[in-house]
Write a protein that binds this DNA or RNA. Structure first.
Lengths: 196, 196
DNA sequence: CTTATTTTATGCGAAATAATACAAAAAAGA
DNA sequence: TCTTTTTTGTATTATTTCGCATAAAATAAG
């Protein structure tokens, strides 16, 4: 098997290049010529391997969110105490959001909303990520509540949304250049204030 | 005075039309042809009156943010108690963010971030709005603290950021179609939890 | 060696897009 | 009435962009 001419590009590397470009410029401002350079492929090969621009963008989103989601689940599950887990999760996110120069925040939160109205599939991708994070955070809070680690007065679903709000503001602020230290301080205050 | 041929368009209405279009599609996905229709002007007149696409977008942002900022200041100043003021402010914002069909969230938070890296001026507009809201909220909290209305343990600047995080998540969630009632509930819980 | 299969690379063509040139139109002032 | 000023509308140009057609290249199977 592997019948025809072998591929010259690495699918993973190409998608990474595409993702980085979308992360910087968003969907609409990115052209296929830009993508061809970033993916180190020519346009016909791109169409053949990935489909049109929307499809590449959504595949980039899917990979990015998969990592984010997985990181959250693993970090929250691994930790015995909620607040330690949450702080570790925010720490991870801050590293990603501030990990380039200039800082680019979150691929989904910073680039998908502008497309979400005119492109309902992107809207759905955004909605799904928000929902998954709500669920993951909420379940961890509920577990902590059952363990007696946090107050029964706390409402897990609403608190989860406020924790995600913290994650989102960190993403947005990172994109405006706000320094890591400032974001860390905010994250720790959020955990301390919201989870008790 | 008013020397030459009178304008056939109303500057305010034209800018409103442009703003609505940018709000729906973002900066990059909006063409000047679309704008010409939405503003009820022909392209040369647009260039003459407003400048290029970036300039029209930034004028739309400025007007939108001016109203948001003013609404916040007035609502927070008018109320004697902080929590009532904050709840009223969130209520206003929710009406704006969910006021169309489909819901479009916040013009700035939902469309500017995707442009902010490649267009530093837009990045600055975003940063400035975030900063102004931080300051406005923080000052109101500090006042309440001096009045003995809220605890001295509360950190006004950090709490202000968490309140803005709440505003931002409401904007993003509104854009994914989350219902008003759900957003209201979140806003009230945020005020209750964060401001004590 | 021949055939089938898949990818690559050049390049084309249609459509969209940004921005401007230019003359006609519409007003005020001399 | 004639000039000046500003806006309007048609048209044009140059560029970008998307998506695909086509043929060459590179491999496996028969």
């Amino acid at each position: 098997m592997a019948r025809g001419r072998p591929r010259q590009f690495d699918e993973d590397e190409a998608l990474t290049g595409a993702m980085l470009l979308f992360w910087e410029k968003g969907l609409s401002a990115t052209s296929l010529d830009d993508l061809a350079i970033a993916m180190n492929m020519n346009r016909p090969s791109i169409y053949n391997a990935f489909g049109n621009k929307d499809a590449i963008y959504r595949k980039s989103l899917a990979r990015f969110c998969g990592q984010l989601d997985k990181g959250m689940q693993e970090t929250l599950d691994a930790s015995t105490s909620v607040d330690v887990g949450l702080n570790a999760f925010f720490e991870q996110a801050i590293e990603v959001y501030c990990g380039s120069n200039p800082q680019m925040g979150c691929l989904m939160i910073c680039t998908a909303p502008s497309e979400a109205v005119s492109n309902p599939e992107v809207g759905k991708d955004l909605k799904d990520l928000i929902s998954r994070l709500d669920v993951g955070l909420s379940q961890r809070l509920a577990r902590a509540q059952r363990n007696g680690e946090i107050s029964v007065d706390l409402q897990p679903k609403l608190t989860a949304k406020l924790l995600q709000a913290t994650l989102q503001t960190i993403a947005l602020r990172a994109r405006t250049g706000e320094p890591k230290a400032s974001l860390r301080k905010l994250a720790r205050y959020a955990v301390k204030t919201l989870v008790h």
